[in-house]
Design a protein around this nucleic acid. Structure first.
Lengths: 226, 226
DNA sequence: CGATACGTTGATTGACTTCAACTAAGGTGG
DNA sequence: CCACCTTAGTTGAAGTCAATCAACGTATCG
């Protein structure tokens, strides 16, 4: 429940790098801590440094002129942020939890190519999801993806079930999946009623039937006959 | 009307590289010609070589288990095909016209990183389109993209108008834009009636008002008040 | 000449959005 | 400590955009 505690200063509409990623007191020489809802990069501003996410969850997004937002990727531990080549950021990046970042590229040579390639693959999967999947399939795909990136050490869960922290809010998920908050919420409710997931708080989710969920995500089974 | 002439053998469900990209009689030492509707790569099969598109149009796509298809990108002259790193192709690639390909990577060192980066950017733009744009905005975006990639030498067109060959069929566009054939067709009709484009044959399109089209694509204007 | 593929248009349906009301949890300040 | 506000989430009812279903025109091809 880390990300429920203190509230980040609202850095929106302000140049990034100057305000938001200010180091916390516990910063070590090589890492950077940021509170939830702070801005790592801001679309359109001068490109920032590259980071590896050590801990927490970051949402990478683009915004249309009229404010519609599309989250391009959810980035968890181990993955890279800000590998662009232009002068300016093409995407914004916002922390969805307490996040620990490590600047990269200095001493340690990262495999940029592999990271870029992973981004291409994830982008393609997202395009297929957005273009051709229905609401239930999208939500199921998202749950599987996030469960993979954010599993938490299982404390006595049943065999085969996966418990994870769902950092994005329903609204974040909607902006990722091309849906609305309400539709996302309804899908969660139906998945819960169908016994595929369980949650008391909306952000601690247990994936009870990963295989069934995968079937739904792929469109080879529907919620009706699951 | 190149791509209307002969019909390619249907390479679907057959291993690629063996059947489809057979060299034409006019093949030179370094390039490869392929007829319309032939398969360059097939999703799931062993990875093929990398090509640069010299001429024509190639559609890169993914398919869900039940057959729904999402076109990930339309690739025109100058751009690269098949820059993946796994063992198997993650996407299929199909020619939409007569296509001239040039194998790359041998003597000439290509800037793979730049190509990967371009793919990431285009993928992100597609995700935003699919997740957050309505039908008219999607079609407008597609027309602008294709006009850029496939302009033809203007022969006496009016100032500011751009004439191009629309290689993809309405069905291909639908699979690219996450719509149906009918919706794409209706959008074309409306854009034509609004005076933004013109066409006699459905595949030779003239973009009459690029700026107005860009407004629609961005969502800052609607077809109603254009 | 019939068969097939592509495109267009109209009528109807439906999945998701929009609008609205309500609950619960946290944070603030008197 | 409690009244008050804000934010997130859920649920229901109504509305809408695009999908589906259907019919038809045209061009190509065997």
């Amino acid at each position: 429940m880390l990300h429920v505690l203190p509230k980040a200063a609202d850095g929106h509409a302000l140049p990034p790098q100057l305000l938001s990623p200010r180091p916390s007191l516990r910063q070590t020489v090589t890492t950077l801590q940021m509170p939830p809802r702070s801005t790592v990069f801001l679309e359109g501003f001068a490109r920032g440094p590259q980071y590896r996410v050590i801990e927490g969850c970051v949402a990478v997004s683009q915004t249309l002129p009229d404010g519609r937002r599309q989250i391009i990727d959810m980035v968890g531990p181990g993955r890279l942020l800000g590998i662009g080549t232009g002068e300016r950021n093409r995407c914004s990046a916002e922390t969805l939890s307490y996040v620990v970042l490590e600047p990269v590229g200095k001493a340690e040579p990262v495999d940029l190519q592999a990271a870029l390639h992973e981004m291409v693959l994830r982008g393609q999967a997202l395009a297929t999801l957005l273009g051709r999947k229905n609401a239930a399939e999208r939500v199921a795909s998202a749950i599987l993806d996030l469960a993979g990136q954010f599993v938490r050490p299982a404390k006595g869960g049943k065999r085969g079930s996966i418990c994870f922290t769902l950092y994005p809010t329903r609204g974040d998920l909607a902006d990722w999946l091309g849906l609305t908050v309400e539709t996302v919420s309804r899908c969660f409710t139906r998945l819960k009623r169908a016994g595929l997931i369980d949650f008391r708080q909306p952000e601690i989710v247990t994936l009870l039937k990963p295989e069934a969920m995968a079937q739904i995500a792929a469109g080879t089974a529907t919620l009706a006959n699951a």
